[in-house]
Design a protein around this nucleic acid. Structure first.
Lengths: 133, 133
DNA sequence: CCCACCGTACTAGGACGATAGTACGGTCGA
DNA sequence: TCGACCGTACTATCGTCCTAGTACGGTGGG
């Protein structure tokens, strides 16, 4: 089954990139191993309620990264190095954004302890989710 | 003196909102108290290298929030409730973005400890900056 | 009183991304 | 073989945001 993918057109980050991010996460976490077939452009568009062209663009970007290879007629497949590339790309990006967000929160007056607490409470909620699986 | 304001047109967040965020931070942290005069539209545009219209839009958005009041002919001034409103708005927003970024980093496979360490190292760097002031 | 500076408004243009609709050729199972 | 499904490509249109240039009237110090 697909991870719970979704796209919010309200956010600053463009839909095509939101989708690409989530696919990268899924590939990086081995939800799709090398050779796996990703959802078709049309199916995925219907699933997250965006235009097929937008999905196609996300796939094209991922292909440019070497994570994925589209085979005309049959589908889009994870490459051999896909998981490694995805993990590297997302690891770097998310860590950068995390630091950026932390800095902004500090700049806005939040105490370091507040952020540390929030982080801990995320861990608790994550444990809850995993326990109920 | 102005805080070190800057705008990066490359980022996803539009320049006008980047600027508004930074002004909110400055007002929230009492760098500009009630009644303070903010830089003129033209000066600020020259400072951060964007169009005066873009600065004007940021001011208009802040005025809609009640943080600021533009007086035609004389300048843009922080309102009485400005600091409180700015603190509330930025506090909520930055905390939300922080949690979102933390969740994304965890989703991408980072360990909770990695994030906690990064957070601590930010504190260290922040102390360094404050020590050299 | 004046003139420099202020916020504000307006038009026009361009960049970018999403959307809509259509079309073409490849693939593969029934 | 044939038809359903696939990726891909293309054009056109829309909305949002920034840029550019111009203009107007209010404000306030010299």
């Amino acid at each position: 089954m697909n991870p719970t993918w979704s796209v919010d057109p309200q956010l600053d980050r463009p839909p095509s990139r939101q989708l690409a991010d989530q696919i990268l996460d899924a590939v990086a976490s081995d939800a799709f191993g090398p050779g796996s077939k990703l959802p078709s452009v049309r199916d995925l568009a219907a699933l997250v309620l965006i235009n097929p062209n937008t999905v196609s663009r996300a796939y094209r970007d991922l292909e440019a990264m070497g994570v994925v290879k589209g085979r005309s007629g049959s589908g889009v497949f994870v490459t051999e190095k896909g998981p490694a590339l995805a993990a590297a790309a997302r690891g770097e990006e998310t860590l950068r954004l995390f630091e950026e967000a932390a800095r902004a929160a500090l700049r806005a007056g939040h105490a370091m302890e507040t952020l540390a607490e929030r982080l801990k409470s995320l861990r608790a909620r994550k444990r809850d989710r995993e326990a109920t699986r």
